[in-house]
Design a protein around this nucleic acid. Structure first.
Lengths: 145, 145
DNA sequence: TGAGATAATTTGTATGTACAAGCAATGCTG
DNA sequence: CAGCATTGCTTGTACATACAAATTATCTCA
């Protein structure tokens, strides 16, 4: 009955709120695109980084994914369980290598990723998407401190 | 040793990835600003909406927060437990009212919110923040379908 | 009027991510 | 070399959010 589209504006001017709303929307989209790979998008990125640089250390993964080391431990656990990568501990450090299975997944991941890109580009426009991504990346870098 | 700042770009062009990175950064910031209120930012927003419109229904909250109804149920549960709001069930619907305590929290929430805004504006620039928020809001609206 | 269709909320469960504390390996300084 | 600090990883736990299924209430129409 009431025009509540208008009320929204209280929250709509909050960066925290809008970013998280966008995050939920695009996460849904990404999970959809990556469903074929059997991995969540972030796990897939993790595997991608391992494929790109076999022997990468966990801390390097944490750094590139901008996530906490403990989070990476969980990712690795899961990918090891799925037989896609292997840990090679060496002293206190541990280096990660893809298995053959892991390497073979690379193509599917690339395809899923491309699909994601195309899906949101179709809605937002290709050039606009690139621009938005760049702006958001900048803001993220600054706020990360 | 290696210049891995450069490697990043693979992920840095992905909207999903950058949005989530920004989301993590600003969520940390928001949790910090709202710590004084004893609530997480989203719970605080929920209470704010209830204060703004006593008797609001759960579905309306879900709509305004762009979250799933089941999620709202959990929020309400928690805020009720804290004695900040009350449920008034009426048939299958349920209407939410603030308690006195809940109403009294409003000021603190506003202050925390302002603090959040100032904190990120100080880093990103006030005008730039507004602009970025607007762009992100637009994208969020489009991708939500 | 009454039976299925729809709507609002709840419950069970799962996932992603984080923080804090712990452990084990390494490095540093006297 | 001994002892302490640092680094890299793991474990326990917690939280926000979602989805699917269940529950209850309301609506519709023959």
């Amino acid at each position: 009955m009431e025009k509540n589209n208008v009320d929204n504006c209280i929250l709509d001017n909050c960066l925290y709120f809008t970013v998280n709303k966008l995050s939920r929307a695009i996460t849904r989209m990404a999970e959809d695109s990556f469903k074929k790979t059997g991995l969540s998008p972030t796990h897939a990125f993790c595997l991608m980084l391992v494929n790109n640089k076999p022997g990468i250390s966990q801390s390097e993964l944490a750094e590139q994914l901008h996530m906490m080391p403990s989070t990476i431990t969980r990712f690795i656990d899961k990918l090891v369980m799925k037989g896609l990568i292997e840990r090679k501990a060496e002293g206190k450090r541990s280096f990660i290598f893809p298995t053959d299975d892991g390497e073979n997944t690379q193509q599917e991941i690339r395809a899923a990723w491309k699909d994601l890109f195309q899906t949101y580009s179709a809605i937002l426009g290709e050039e606009e998407s690139r621009l938005l991504t760049a702006l958001i990346r900048e803001a993220g870098n600054k706020l990360e401190k």
